[in-house]
Design a protein around this nucleic acid. Structure first.
Length: 316
DNA sequence: TTCAACTGGTCTCAGTCGAG
DNA sequence: CTCGACTGAGACCAGTTGAA
């Protein structure tokens, strides 16, 4: 036991009088703003978390989380600590995780990737078999498109996200993976539609559209037609690209989806491709990773694999 | 250097307290 | 009353001490 200059008694391992494990507790406490939930996150009992908060309060000389009514509200000091502490822990995590070499044949790495189900269908269906061949011990977890994919990346909850260029933010490195364009699909036996379609015909049909997450964010096609003042009659809203083509089959409805996704489903479903009534811009899917993982050879390897998996066409 | 006994901090469990 | 934060008792274990 040692006594520090300011009279604090020190036990165990400390960094400038602070037990660094308390930062882990602080991060969980500030993220949850609730002691019980923070304790579950760290697999501790509620009293243990309460004790950690008491030690943090002692160290900082501040309540950090103060009860207001039934809620625990962070103090201004706690607010100002939240971002930097999260950043430090992420830096620690990436530091201890990185190995100078990535040996695919033996590596046991687990990757968490966030992407739309469209990307998982057109990209991961090709990438996963290849990854199993080259890196049999690597495991992959695909996370659904949330309302705030960028926050998941910032918080280090995912290794990378894959999304269209228009949604990327500054501050983290990104790399293009593949391009795609849009097409319409209809049921093969839909007599109302031929190989092409006029805008009037298009707008007269019922549409199947996709919206994501809690906020029900529209997919690009919906945004595009709204933006140009063309009101489509959306009769079916579904939550995933993978269900959308099946909701066109057996109906006179139409859907506007990615070429590559259409190619995929044309192999299984009685669908026909219809050229969109107006020219739609191409989209580029990019992979974005946290700047702290920039030097991670494992991620570099994964990016190379993913790039290999998309052979050039569709965009025409 | 190694080992056993000891020490102190943090854990869990059980229970209390206070707000809504 | 219910829910969630806090408190106290005892267990557990990492780190320290001191002897061989």
């Amino acid at each position: 036991m040692a006594v520090a200059g300011d009279g604090h008694i020190l036990h165990g391992m400390h960094f400038n009088h602070l037990d660094l494990n308390l930062l882990v507790a602080l991060d969980a406490l500030l993220a949850e703003q609730n002691i019980t939930r923070a304790s579950r996150r760290l697999h501790l009992s509620q009293p243990a978390m309460s004790g950690a908060l008491a030690r943090l309060r002692e160290y900082f000389g501040d309540d950090l989380l103060a009860p207001i009514g039934r809620r625990m509200v962070p103090t201004p000091l706690a607010e100002s600590l939240a971002g930097p502490v999260r950043d430090i822990l992420l830096k620690v995590e990436t530091t201890v995780q990185i190995r100078p070499e990535f040996d695919p044949a033996r590596a046991q790495r687990h990757f968490k990737l966030l992407m739309s189900d469209y990307v998982s269908i057109v990209l991961m269906t090709k990438a996963l078999p290849l990854i199993q061949q080259i890196a049999p011990q690597v495991t992959i977890e695909l996370l659904p498109y949330s309302d705030r994919p960028w926050e998941s990346l910032e918080r280090g909850e995912v290794d990378a996200l894959i999304q269209p260029t228009q949604y990327i933010h500054e501050g983290h490195p990104a790399e293009a993976l593949f391009e795609d364009s849009y097409t319409c699909i209809a049921w093969q036996e839909n007599q109302l539609i031929g190989e092409s379609i006029t805008l009037e015909e298009y707008l007269a049909l019922g549409h199947v559209a996709v919206r994501f997450g809690q906020q029900r964010l529209p997919a690009f096609d919906e945004w595009f037609f709204d933006h140009y003042g063309h009101t489509r009659r959306i009769e079916i809203i579904t939550a995933s690209f993978s269900t959308l083509p099946q909701f066109v089959v057996g109906t006179t409805r139409i859907a506007t989806i990615h070429q590559r996704l259409a190619d995929f489903y044309l192999r299984f479903l009685p669908l026909k491709r219809v050229a969109p009534p107006v020219e739609m811009p191409h989209l580029t899917e990019v992979i974005v990773w946290h700047r702290y993982r920039n030097r991670d050879p494992a991620l570099l390897w994964l990016r190379n694999i993913l790039r290999q998996c998309v052979d050039s066409p569709p965009p025409q």
